[in-house]
Design a protein around this nucleic acid. Structure first.
Lengths: 340, 340
DNA sequence: CTGAAAGCGCTTACAG
DNA sequence: CTGAAAGCGCTTACAG
């Protein structure tokens, strides 16, 4: 059978097409009895309105877009994005929205997709990840007037609503924990320097170490890849006054750090304590299991989808704070080695 | 400025809307000079045709759909899907197609989305993953007449074209390699039993072990999660005649297996050799780095997208064989321990 | 509360 | 090679 249209339903229910549209969209203009009859027919025919016709006639497309930069192969390894997408879809599906996913080589191409999606009428709004300070995408979106939500710190999201949590607070928790264990030389292997949340973490790390009077609180920049994490770790552990604890900005680099420590004959946590930001199943599987900063990334996705749908609906959405990552102490952290 | 339409372009170029459409779509019916003038105007206005109007008027929607079952948290950890999606998008973007991503609780819901997408005119075709023997989605898609490509073994893809490689050959390579090192007791921790490719691997494993006269060639079923891999490994290593080598159906379970071996005081590869199917950055980061069966998953994505676009274009696409996974020997494999 | 009609922005036969 | 027109399947004022 051909795909049924509202005309078919109107005929079967003995009403006009307009009435069918009102009934289907839950609008006033049809009596309860008529509405019920129409919905019954639509249900029996398993009717779904053509989304192209709907969007063309002025309704929403019911699609939101997500662009992701294809980085040097770290994307597939970090669970972050898949967990985020899971959360997004949980909320989007509930509201009958679909997700358009687009990988791009860089930020300029992301903006080009925003423009194109808007011109093509493909999406009602977009989600923005991996925000940098002065990110060109924010201004472009503000100018385009395309509803958008930033998944990142509010201070770089301009007038766009954002979803993020207080990374500074989590960093303080991690450093204070290590200090309480007795560590005095704590280092950090950081994420991509340009990302706004990296700057926040770095500032918090430096600040708390100063407050606690910890010297040598150095941050070595890296790019989330295992190789970069390994390189940074070798550099730290090869120094004269090597740190007794290292905090990594993602789990992949922490895994690499653990391996480098083993290579160098250092025991973890006996000679070196390790903390990973962003917990993942891998952290729990290692030997020793990694102490990690755990957060519910799926919940970010749910919150971001809610904000975006609200913005699409015309509400002035306000930024949301998720629960900050909290420390999950495991076997990779202990007191520092006794002074030789 | 309002979004320009073909009417605007027609006016500026001094032609009819029909001519603009023909020019934009590279169809005959306009002279080269006119075409060039039209394209120049469209380019200057940064024009992109409204995809809803285009689809409604009978052209393609230029969207393909991918449904992924949300499994017990393994999705985020396995790089497989992100790499697959990267490959898909590489080809789709090249052809101006977008990807609609939908996570679902189960296969029945996947079929419901296929039906709905078709009714709504949202997608021109879909991609199918994680195929089981007698998978209900295949028959449903054949009946719906929605163009589709299976990413899985051809023998379970019905009349749909498929993209997969010869897992049996790769399994033989791995077992023969271990046998050549001297191993006589090789076990396997398998993936989800219902998946078609799991059955193929199991049959190949059993077959080659029989051919080589290896006894105790048992496959312990698991579900790709680290926990299940750890449990299966404990069971294998706790047995009277424990294996000297284990092949894991994914990298997460192999990592868990490595940790269990360490827990039990077994050295890898001294006491136990480990092989992981599906290489990932994590495999290279561990200590020892894991010997793995490596394949180019992104290439599967490219091939699948090509097949699907061909099918959407009306061609009778034929299944494609990707390069089989090949063994990357690393530190986790060596000869078996000398008999006590 | 309901019906008839215009219009969204395209594509595509159909005449010239 | 070009123009005028119908039609895709909806939504939404606008009359009754």
């Amino acid at each position: 059978m051909k795909r049924p249209t509202i005309a078919d339903i109107a005929r079967e229910a003995g009403v006009s097409k307009g009435a069918v549209s009102y009934a289907l969209n839950g609008r006033p203009g049809v009596s309860p009895a008529t509405r019920e009859r129409i919905l019954a027919v639509a249900g029996r025919l398993n009717f779904h309105a053509d989304s192209n016709a709907r969007a063309l006639a002025g309704a929403k497309a019911r699609v939101v877009g997500l662009t992701l930069q294809r980085p040097p192969s770290t994307l597939g390894v970090e669970p972050f994005f898949m967990e985020l997408i899971s959360g997004l879809e949980l909320e989007l599906s509930r509201r009958s929205y679909a997700l358009l996913l687009q990988m791009t080589p860089g930020r300029d191409e992301e903006v080009a997709f925003y423009r194109r999606w808007l011109s093509e009428g493909r999406v009602d709004g977009v989600l923005v990840c991996d925000v940098r300070t002065g990110d060109s995408r924010i201004a472009a979106l503000e100018e385009l007037g395309l509803p958008a939500v930033v998944i990142g710190p509010p201070d770089v999201s301009g007038s766009l609503p954002s979803v993020w949590s207080d990374d500074a607070q989590s960093m303080v928790e991690a450093v204070e924990y290590l200090a309480a264990l007795g560590h005095r030389r704590i280092a950090r292997v950081g994420g991509i320097v340009e990302f706004a949340h990296t700057a926040i973490r770095t500032a918090a790390f430096t600040g708390v170490c100063e407050r606690l009077g910890l010297a040598d609180a150095v941050t070595v920049p890296a790019d989330y890849s295992g190789d970069s994490g390994a390189r940074a770790t070798r550099r730290l552990l090869g120094a004269a006054h090597r740190p007794t604890a290292v905090i990594y900005d993602n789990d992949i680099m922490a895994v690499a750090g653990l391996t480098v420590a083993h290579e160098l004959g250092l025991s973890v946590p006996g000679d070196l304590s390790i903390v990973a930001w962003d917990d993942s199943p891998i952290c729990r599987l290692l030997h020793p299991p990694l102490t990690a900063l755990t957060r519910d990334i799926g919940a970010y996705g749910v919150a971001a989808a809610q904000l975006l749908l609200a913005a699409i609906g015309g509400a002035t959405a306000t930024s949301t704070h998720g629960a900050p990552a909290h420390l999950s102490p495991r076997g990779s952290t202990a007191g520092p080695p006794a002074p030789a």
